[in-house]
Design a binder for these strands. Sequence first.
DNA 1: GGAAGCCGCGCG
DNA 2: ACCGCGCGGCTTCC
Length: 631
Amino acid sequence: MVNTEIGSIMKIESLQSWEQAIQEIKARRICGLGIETTGSDPLIQRIRLVQLALPNDRIYFADIFDLGEEALDGLAELLEDPNVKKVIHNANFGLSFIRVSQRRRLKFRNIFDILLASQLCWSGYYDLAPSKSKKNPWRKRLPDHSLEALAERHLGILMGKKCLDWDWSISDLSPDQTDYSTKQVRVLLPLHVIFQELIEKNRLEKVADLEFKTISPLVEMELSGICFDSDAAKALIVEKESQLVEVFINLQAEAKANGFHTLSSESKSPFDYFNPESREDIIRYLQSQGFSIASTKADVLKELAGQGCIFAEELLRYRQVSHELAFLDNWLAKIHSADGRIHSTYYQLNSATGRLSSCRPNAQQIPSRGDDAAAMRKLFKAAPGKKIVKADFSAIELRIMAYLSGDETMRRALQEGQDLHKLTASGVSGLPLEQVTREQRQAAKTINFLLIYGGSAETLQWRALSDYGNFMSLDEAEEARNKFFATYPGIKQWQEKQIAEMSFTVRHYFHNCIYGMFEMPLTCTFTALGRRRVWPRFGVGIRASKFQLFNTPCQGTGADLIKLVMCELYEKLQSEDARIVGSIHDEIVLEVPEDEAEYYASLLCVVMNRVGSEMLYPVPVTSDAEITSSW
DNA sequence: GGAAGCCGCGCG
DNA sequence: ACCGCGCGGCTTCC
């Protein structure tokens, strides 16, 4: 049992003593940092409390409302000092507020984020909890990485739930508030010791350092947001709404004419006849018309439309337009009042592979494929006087696979600057490289992507048909598959090795307050930088699929790469208004002053190529940059 | 009336 | 038997 009264709390009364406290911390080389704010939005709300925990159990407690915002200058400087380690839980949150207060680019150094550390050490782990669903009686439960959960799991300290309706802007904070806040800061250094050891034991040092460094560019990217043309969006909405109404009326009329009634309750559907959003209605209606389908997904409906079913065709149209409308409405709703821009949130390690994810709105799912995608993308424009500079890695998955597998043919082809899709086309068809047609190259692209992730001859056949109406017999698909692996024997070997990993285990270290450090034998995959994903071993049948074992190292290495690029690039950004504004898995988007666009376009490529080629050595990495006025 | 699960679909 | 995400709508269950 830990006595929370141990250690003294020093309330800072003046800027001068705050400065002294910071000097003392610099001598100590390490501190825990806790920040309380008046709300969750750094663009609107402010920092209220700053608490710094020292290794001698002393806590410096600063009320920024009393000291004034100038107090944050010294803190920002401390955060940029590479010689002092700052231990924080969810650094992104507090540091965003610091970044706003300083109105300048901050390069945080030597941050140790307990949240990211925990997510790294438990990456992929889950346990099973009973579920109400009959179809799926066990559901995956991911570990809780909140500070409260970590304190309980690793230290045995029960902190209770943080009260969400505490007001941190009132002049006199209640003892409950300040006590709870202090309790949180107090567990940071003890947790740091544990996670430092876990990171070392699991050989995650390089990945952890990368993740901690990524906080700076990510904070700035979220605060930068992206410029959005709301007038053009509104015009597009008007247009699409009338399209939607038209399709909707047609669907209603046809359902009515055939005596159909919806099952949806009245509140959900404004008409009695047919609710196009209800899969139940769709299946029932089409059944009544003599079409029997098990699913209402797009390719099933397309099949029906091909057979002359107008209703299915209209349904597809309805779906498409309503989906696009939902995007537009959502983006408009997310425009921030402070600067008229859209500020997505990025999660650094919410995914099992290490990729970034994005939400509210998801900046990584802006349409790019469909008919109206270009018009939608145009809405994300550069601010006046700025240009958008974007670059993506070319065929990065294949390069990563070449690196991971060490396949000779693939490596040599890439070193010689050959077109891998063409090479595959040649290997599959038996034609010399120069006789490969554009169509064959396109088909080879599909083959490449499907087969490196474990696709079967059947999926190959199906994709060839659905993508370009190219009919392939099963034998032909099987033949293409065999030729692919004959062309790249290293890939085949690597896949076999990965499958063997299913029954092979690696010692992975965990920690809790009951057992202390302990190891478990787990299925484990690794990326170029040593990032891990583990698979817990419960009963039979619950294990990594071969697809996951093929895909995770590849996707994860891509994540290592893009994060490294973000960090290196961030260091090289010159003017304050050259900003990273997007990161979409293999693509970086910048918004820069117009007259610097050329400079940043080439810088971006140089950094991407260098970082990529170093990480995947001896496989070279290339990228394509482009200067535009919108995404 | 809210939470959980499922489906379908946008991106890479 | 293709992987990884987030989101919105419907349905079901408390």
